[in-house]
Computed example of a mutant assay.
Amino acid sequence: MTSLITSAILNDETPGADTLATRLAYSMAIVRFVNDLVDSLDVTLPVYHLAKMLGIPLYFVEIRHTATHDELPSLELLRQVGVRARTWLWDNYWAKIEEPFASAVFGTEIETEVKTLTREWRRLRRDSLTKEVRRNDISVYGQQYWNLVNLFVQHQAGDERDMIRVFLTANILVPTDGKSVTSRIKLYGPLLKVLAGNGFVDRLVEALIEHLVSLEGNLEIEASKLVYDTLDTWAEVLFSQSEWFQDPEFVLSIVLGQIHAMSLKHLRVFITSLVEANRFILPRRLAKVRAAAQVWEGATEDKTAIEQVITEVENSLRINQAELDDNTMTFWELDTEWDPSHFIGDCS
């Protein structure tokens, strides 16, 4: 990948280089760059989602799509993307290759630092769990709050996967000290809402569900059962806040793809929230949702609630279609102030 991108850049710098050939070289390099990276996951998901999982900037995926299916991007755009791709490879691969133990050490450092930050967060929020803090709050408390949030964001940008692991396994979201999960939800819910802006909650839910599924075979062990129940409670909370997800359709695919004992309940909670906050997403998945509700085991009230949501969406779609079918007037007949007479004589 690096050699292809570097070759395209060097070819571009050659005096008299053919513009079309240069655009082709850049385009092929970007296509290979994205394809080779996402293929390494060996997972059947859209390229967009795989790129997000790998932390690949999504403009690379857009350029790949354009170069593959549409006209070649402009040379100026390809130059910028080529340089950025080479920089990305350096930062995420070559700069780390000489330190084979760096990832393990870095993971340990992240765990220590995230634990320190969460202790500070608990100290700050301990006596003010219900207090809302606006971005423009310049009080001492407000400045402490947002400075701490910014530190979480920085660690998230550094190694999000390790940060999520720590959140789920280090007595942060999932208490191992006998404390109530309800208090943890009140404590960390506002923080997760802020971190949700760039997809953190999407990936947290993905890891949370995987962890929950992995515990299903050990529920006879009391400790595993407590963790399982806590993860289930967190899943319900997060699925009820679909506006926190950057890509709700991707999260819905996770819910439909990970079948476990709580799947039906989670599906009911999530689609109910989707109807309220992201109504445009659910119609594309109605058939799969209905099929899952019919086949999955679970409470009758969950099945009934899911069918009610589906019916509501279907009725809404029929009403909208009926309104479109009835609307046979042209747009100037609908707009009584629109007068086409001033165009007469303009077409001579």
Rank of each mutant, 00 (worst) to 15 (best):
L267A: 09
V237R: 13
Q241K: 15
S240F: 01
W234N: 04
I271K: 06
S224H: 13
L252R: 10
E236I: 07
I271G: 07
F239R: 02
L238Q: 03
Q241W: 01
T233Q: 11
L256R: 06
F270W: 10
F250T: 09
M262D: 11
R268N: 14
H260C: 15
S263L: 03
K265I: 00
W244K: 03
H266W: 15
F250D: 10
T272R: 12
Y228V: 02
W244R: 07
F250M: 12
A235P: 00
F270V: 09
I259S: 09
S253W: 02
V269S: 05
F245A: 07
S263G: 13
S224F: 09
E236Q: 11
D229V: 06
L226I: 14
L226Q: 14
D247N: 11
Y228K: 05
D229G: 01
E243Q: 12
Q241P: 00
S263K: 03
Y228P: 04
Q246N: 07
Y228E: 05
K225R: 15
D232N: 13
I259Y: 03
K225Y: 11
K225H: 12
S242P: 05
I259K: 14
E243R: 10
W234P: 08
A261L: 11
S240C: 02
S224C: 12
L274A: 03
V251Q: 02
L264I: 05
A261F: 06
M262N: 13
L238K: 02
L226R: 14
H266K: 09
S263M: 02
V269G: 07
D247E: 13
L252A: 07
L252W: 10
L226H: 10
L267S: 04
L226P: 00
T230K: 03
I271L: 10
R268V: 00
P248C: 05
V269F: 09
W234F: 05
H266C: 07
I259L: 13
E243D: 11
A261M: 12
E276T: 12
A235F: 02
E249F: 01
F239V: 06
S273M: 08
A261D: 12
Q258F: 13
L256T: 02
